[in-house]
Design a protein around this nucleic acid. Structure first.
Length: 119
DNA sequence: TGGATGACCGCGA
DNA sequence: TTCGCGGCCATCC
């Protein structure tokens, strides 16, 4: 079904991606559980189109920064959205991908640092 | 119940 | 360096 915990876990992470940042299928799959489920992330994003809520799926690219999900977006919106957020796209590929990369576990690190700072 | 599928990843030739 | 292939795992038919 489209409302399983696995799918929701993917959506929760994708929703936390800051504007102007991108992440990878593998990073999301690794955070949820096991790094073998990279394909499932794409499957979940495919189903996210059917949801009423907004999922910034355009911020999810493959490991090399390639916009493999571009053909699943209507028209060229994926590239347009990324450019609007300050992410340059060239030949269906994110320019300076490593510079814009955002790892889901980075949220955990931020919270840990915050605790350290407040102590 | 089992085979097919998928917006991927990593390694070997 | 580029290309091909097998593995991964939840969901669908």
């Amino acid at each position: 079904m489209t409302t399983t915990n696995y799918f929701e876990a993917v959506y929760n992470i994708v929703r936390q991606i800051p504007s102007g940042k991108v992440t990878t299928y593998g990073a999301i799959a690794e955070t949820i559980g096991g790094k073998g489920g990279a394909r499932m992330v794409g499957w979940a994003l495919n189903s996210s189109r059917l949801l009423h809520e907004y999922i910034p799926a355009h911020r999810v690219v493959n490991r090399s920064g390639l916009l493999t999900g571009r053909r699943h977006f209507a028209g060229n919106s994926m590239e347009e959205l990324l450019r609007a957020e300050g992410v340059l796209v060239e030949n269906n590929r994110v320019v300076d991908f490593e510079k814009h990369f955002w790892h889901p576990k980075q949220v955990m690190n931020i919270f840990e640092r915050f605790e350290i700072v407040t102590q």
